[in-house]
Amino acid sequence: MFTQFKYWKPYVSPFDPCKPIRVKSYSTPPQLYIPFQPPGLPQYPTARQALHCGTLWPDLFSPYPNPEKKGK
């Protein structure tokens, strides 16, 4: 299974005026890993939940902001 966010550590100069962000991240949502949606993928149990998520299939759902990083 793939991860929805990837991380990298940019170079930090001793002269950077803004407080450096040591680890940066970017979103890698499911469409990058599913070349063609297979038939019969499991769906959300309720229509309300599917509407809230914006898709019928949990496999296509992508969270934002990164739930691991609390906000940003």
């Binding site: 499911p30 469409q31 599913i34 063609f36 949606q37 914006g54 992508s62 934002y64 902001p65």
Partner: peptide, 29 residues
Amino acid sequence: IDLSDDPDLNDGLKYLREREIVHSLRFRE
């Protein structure tokens, strides 16, 4: 979403973001 501090608005924006993902998949298909 990063700039917004309105949770109700963000709920709608997260929905719209997910639709972009589904559309991208459909175009790839």
